[in-house]
Amino acid sequence: MFDHSHSTLPAAPGVGFKASHFAALTADSGPVRWVEIHAENYMGAGGRPMAQLSALGERFPISVHGVGLSIGGEGPLDADHLARLKRLIDRVQPASFSEHLAWSSHDTGYLNDLLPLPYTEATLDRVAAHIDEVQDRLGRQMLLENPSSYLAFEASTLSEPDFLRALTRRTGCGLLLDVNNVFVSATNLGFAPLDYIDAFPLDAVGEIHLGGHDEDTDDHGAPLLIDSHCRAVADPVWTLLDAVLMRTGPKPVLIEWDTDVPDWPVLAEEARRAEEVLSRLEVSA
């Protein structure tokens, strides 16, 4: 059981780091006060990625964000991957480590997507055991991120916020609240995003994510949003961020932009918008 320190990231804007932004980011980071890396991109032994990571670590608090641990998986955690993660965490000494409420590996290999799981007492036991194992192995608390959902399981007996709350109570883990994921899931599954936020264990939130989504439709013509991280954050997601921060107070807010990555000024402008939201909060406090 780990205490609720959640993370030591500053309550300020951060960005998901892209190698193409290295020169611009290190020359003038603008409003960006911290950076997040995907753990699996920094598991090589050396070369430019590790050199850039070392340079970033001297300038910014680092958040290590894993995408491949398959915490929601049915089988045991991959011990080799956990060992690689432990080496990276020991090397970087990040301000935060986070992973997803999802699975991505099965017996045939790694599927490179964040796949969903039903919310039941059985899956709760399994995910809690996996989080315990990760936190024990890494010797630190982790944050768990809420997923984007495109469908629901008939087998689910717990709501997602209740499932996440139970995990925080059992394991002492913190939560990474992805506000875009809330908006995407709410639209796709037909619930009110604010109801989800009101049910969410906000006292466990150590970090917030924002990202862009694409718009599609399902078989019945109903809107189907895709969590693509390939464009600017949508206006209703900014509005939802306001509502979240009014409830939580200032938090570290990350802009994710992973495909069709824009030039640095475009990403910096998104971070500036997050900075504005955070500064409005300070004025009204």
Binding site: L111, N112, D113, L115, P116, S149, Y150, L151, A152, F153, E154, A155, N188, L189, G190, F191, D216, D218, D219, H220, A222, L224, I226
Partner: peptide
């Protein structure tokens, strides 16, 4: 089986979002 749109209707092509993500990202890799 057992997948819905959250409103009780079958998930249908919503499942294809995951299919597409897996195929597109691995192919791209």
């Amino acid at each position: 089986p057992g997948l819905t749109d959250g409103q009780g209707r079958p998930a249908g092509r919503r499942y294809a979002v995951y299919r597409n993500n897996v195929a597109v990202t691995l192919t791209e890799a």
